[in-house]
Design a protein around this nucleic acid. Sequence first.
DNA 1: ATATGTTAGTCCAAAAACTGGACGGTGTCG
DNA 2: CGACACCGTCCAGTTTTTGGACTAACATAT
Lengths: 163, 163
Amino acid sequence: MKWDEIGQMQCSVARSSAVLGDRWTLLILSDVFLGVRRFEDFQKRLKLSRTTLATRLQMLERHDVLRREQYQSQPVRYEYRLTAKGRDLFPVISTILNWGDKYYADDADVPIIRTHKTCGHDIQPQLVCPDCGEPVNERNMTGRARAAVASHPDVERGPFSRS
Amino acid sequence: MKWDEIGQMQCSVARSSAVLGDRWTLLILSDVFLGVRRFEDFQKRLKLSRTTLATRLQMLERHDVLRREQYQSQPVRYEYRLTAKGRDLFPVISTILNWGDKYYADDADVPIIRTHKTCGHDIQPQLVCPDCGEPVNERNMTGRARAAVASHPDVERGPFSRS
DNA sequence: ATATGTTAGTCCAAAAACTGGACGGTGTCG
DNA sequence: CGACACCGTCCAGTTTTTGGACTAACATAT
């Protein structure tokens, strides 16, 4: 299966993977949320090849996650900014950051300290049920999979298993 | 930069990317949360090459995300199960699913409907501040980056920018 | 007893993706 | 004028991924 074909699968994770699923894209997006916007800055910070960076930025633009915006003329230069769709990736980057902090941070030295401006506390955002407000995890969630998944009778257990 | 080196970077997103950042890993993990546990099932469902699947499973085992557990002898066979570290990826997969559902689901036809067992409602989990309980997003969060990031004076804006 | 099926891989050669570094274009500054 | 900043593209060499054949150890059916 080719990368492009993954984007055609009937599965939200698969389609998201077609966008997010490579070594660099998550890093680039993380930098964008940090305020990085320009080609040279991405390249200096991430040390990936210019070719790959150009390819990724074009891909993210094509998928409407970033948009190129002119910030000067003479010479004409563009910077990359998040679209609304891109901003909606905040929870994804944020939960990845939570996980990385938990398992990979050096000796209680969390690389990025996040503060909730509204209440002023340093926090790690948590997942809750928007209905009852209780925290959710793989044990208190179930899922009814649709056709594509349900057609595999082997899949009977787990939080997203068939009901 | 090589893949292995990314895991050495002083950045939780980078280190997580060294594990999660490829075309197949997110799909495999999503299937694991759906209850898939065996080599053949992964291969049939995801249609990736057996070689790549074997490589990925070994990598996830090496990173202590999955563990191989014998489920029969004669012949000896193993299945793959989540470790505690792996289960902690639930919020990551879940927020990716939210994003994919929002932007890629076919005509109001969400492929996996998730139910919160505790309260019984069909929901999409949301990110909140564990302190005040309010929803968080890229606008009401800030972050103080540490050395590695703070040394880049260009990074001044965005939710994780230096304070 | 032989044939067929199930499951978990490994091996190989071809195709695709990624790499670093040079290069091009367009401007500014001193 | 020379040096620098910025955003890319081009190229040849390396690494990764791919599909399909193949092994191995049993179980089950004929």
